[in-house]
Design a protein around this nucleic acid. Sequence first.
DNA 1: GGAGTTGTTTAGGA
DNA 2: TTCCTAAACAACTC
Length: 265
Amino acid sequence: MPELAEVEFFRRRWNVGVGQKIVAVKLNAEKRIFRGNDLATLQRLLPGAKLIGSEARGKQMLFRFSHDAWLGVHLGMTGELRHEPRDFSIGKHDHLVLAQARQSLVFSDPRLFGRVLFHHGASEPEWWSRLPSALTADTFTLERMKAFLQRRARSPLKGALLQQEFFIGIGNWMADEILWRAKLHPRRASGSLDPAEARELWKAIRFVCAGALRIVSKDYSDPPPSWLFRHRWEKGGLCPKDGRELDRATIGGRTTSWCPACQPQ
DNA sequence: GGAGTTGTTTAGGA
DNA sequence: TTCCTAAACAACTC
């Protein structure tokens, strides 16, 4: 479910608890979303700590608490953040509950591909500091993108766009949307773009990231019907530009949808 | 019952 | 060394 904009949507859902103390922590330590954590320290430090604020970067989120406590959250494929009344009944897939006086903040994840990473320290965790900057920032330049694509010259564009070490926050639907707008076939080799094609790709990345953040992160609305998003999973889905039936195949390890006319091989 | 799912990690091959 | 692919993780839906 969650890519860049969906992650931002879920992050904001916990804003209701900013400025308030955690009064109790309930968690299921057996679940694999907690792997690699010092849960004893988490249990000792979070109760009594106040939620100060949060940030999202790509698909990662970082929640900051008083008492030098930090909580990193990755939603995986099916994770989500919610807030519930103070004494709601915990569901089967609610693995972490931060109870506050007025409500409870909940992390749930049926498939358990998500992850929580607790950190205790005066400054943010190192894994967070090392994340690349946002694709919507000025640091995401055409030249840096070209250099990255050259390093992945033999991989299909679809696979390259999913590399979080550079294209932070892009997931399966955004990658398809970007390639469709740039009129590039998802199987094109990353090292084969001419300067004009690279520029179109860069512009499409900026457009899709900014548009998704504007539309989806506000209230989880779908993008408009002029986007590929609305058609890519329909059986016999049609290209919103020319009405041609979309093609589908596994590329870069993921199901990929494209228009054979707009995006020639 | 089988196939497929908006993600990441790892092992192994090229 | 570096890059690329497939499988594994796990639960649910169609």
